[in-house]
């Protein structure tokens, strides 16, 4: 696990997009290892696109993302919509156990310590006793808990969460948020895309406000100011109207580099 002293991620003039239409423009700066960073912004601001760029699902149109001290395969990434086929006949225990892939790969059997870790991860998300339940019989909240248990086992120094609390109840949000705090206390870097500003203010000391470009970054209380939020909305609407435009010019569209807080 990275020590909390240097950067784990560096954005170097990063521009990401789809079909030559940029969704995130010229992002610069670093994320320090051990950060707990929220990424907020209006719909279409490029938040999920940024996470896809970090895990390498989207190749940069310009610039690059530098991962420091870890491989892309080792990033723990919770996508906004689960790509899991819930009709597949697999029980919670086996689903969560897939989180140990980085340590055991495709072919090695699980030893006693690994089995204990799987049971602990299931217990930590409150699903003890349901180990043998097929995933197809889980509620939305239970499935999200199981996905978090799998993330826990991935034991990655960098965790990316894309809208992890959509359509789940308050108790589940409270339990999973505590788990996220626990990961961060262990020294893991967590970057979460979120919409609930109140939750961000309570749980996340740092925030990146995006509106297809960086609007503000730093301490959450300062970033989520009325002025910044108004500017983000304005930018998103303006750029949304101009979304048919071709790729922007890097030289004329140079965002200020923000000091990481």
């Amino acid at each position: 696990m990275n020590s909390a002293c240097g950067p784990i991620l560096r954005f170097d003039n990063l521009t990401l997009g789809y079909n030559r239409h940029p969704a995130v423009h010229h992002l610069r700066g670093e994320v320090i290892a051990g950060s707990l960073l929220a990424v907020v912004g209006p719909n279409g601001a490029g938040k999920s696109t940024l996470l896809k760029g970090i895990v390498g699902e989207l190749r940069p149109m310009q610039g690059r993302v530098e991962l420091i001290g870890l491989q892309r395969e080792n990033i723990a990434y919770l996508t906004q919509q689960s790509t899991l086929d819930v009709s597949f006949p697999i029980v919670i225990y086996d689903f969560v156990a897939m989180g140990l892939w980085a340590q055991f790969g495709a072919f090695r059997g699980f030893n006693r310590a690994a089995k204990q870790r799987i049971e602990e991860a299931i217990g930590a998300v409150g699903l003890s006793g349901l180990e043998n339940r097929p995933i197809g019989q889980l509620s939305g909240g239970q499935l999200q808990r199981a996905r978090f248990a799998r993330l826990t086992l991935q034991d990655s120094p960098l965790v990316l969460l894309d809208e992890p609390y959509g359509a789940i109840d308050v108790n589940t949000v409270r339990d999973l948020a505590a788990l996220v705090r626990g990961w961060n206390n262990e020294g893991r870097t967590v970057i979460s895309v979120l919409h609930d500003f109140e939750h961000v203010r309570q749980e996340y000391p740092e925030t990146l406000l995006l509106a297809r470009e960086e609007v503000a970054r730093g301490a959450t209380t300062q970033v989520l100011s009325d002025d910044n939020l108004h500017r983000a909305r304005h930018l998103a609407e303006a750029q949304g109207e101009a979304s048919g435009a071709a790729i922007c010019n890097a030289e004329t569209h140079d965002t200020a580099e923000h000091q990481h807080g």
Binding site: T79, L84, D85
Partner: peptide, 14 residues
Amino acid sequence: VLECSDPEHLARIS
């Protein structure tokens, strides 16, 4: 099993 149940996740981690 992972290829059949969640191929996108497999592509990310392996």
